[in-house]
Write a protein that binds this DNA or RNA. Sequence first.
DNA 1: ATCCCGAGGG
DNA 2: CCCTCTGGAT
Length: 220
Amino acid sequence: MKKADVFEFYRRLAEANPHPETELESGNAYQLLVAVVLSAQATDAGVNTATRALFDRVKTPEQMVALGLDALKQHIRTIGLFNTKAKNVIALSEALVADHGSAVPDDRAALERLPGVGRKTANVVLNVAFGAETFAVDTHIFRVGNRTGLARGKTPLAVENALDKATPQPFRVHAHHWLILHGRYVCKARKPECWRCIVADLCAFKPKTPAPRTPPPATP
DNA sequence: ATCCCGAGGG
DNA sequence: CCCTCTGGAT
């Protein structure tokens, strides 16, 4: 995508949603970290349903360790991959207490050393909790980047690097959320809703199926 | 490359 | 039924 089109692409998304935020619910950086770990291959809505009760009781890594593995599994049973995730969250909480004074570290290397935390999760925490200009490439951003031509790559890391190169100020801090929300609600995996997409004219993807005769009323 | 693994949508 | 959802570890 041309530079001018990239700027216009972000400008429109920014205009439509001036203050994008995570849809994951959390009350502090620790809870955010846990929520992001739980969100792997799961919907935000599903994670929120589970963490609502959990975070009411657990606000610190010490409290998570005290809660214990089996009780944690009960809380997150409705989320996919719950067995592995529960184990990682307990181990990660123990590591925070032992090595980081119970605080969430603000550097990538320390974050990625935590069990269950890879590059994508670290990028989300760095962006949301610390305001870093990181591009966490999840399934949505990978799809939107490649489909639109904004930032293409065969791997998530390649798309991340392409986004880093292509994304100008003042859009860098919020680019992650604009792209993910665009992917979740408009540029969907199965049925992208191009007829109501505000950047369709800048996009490389041209749908074969036209807009429905009776489109659903626009969401407020 | 494969495993982990549940809910919701089409 | 099959696909998708803010992946990570082996």
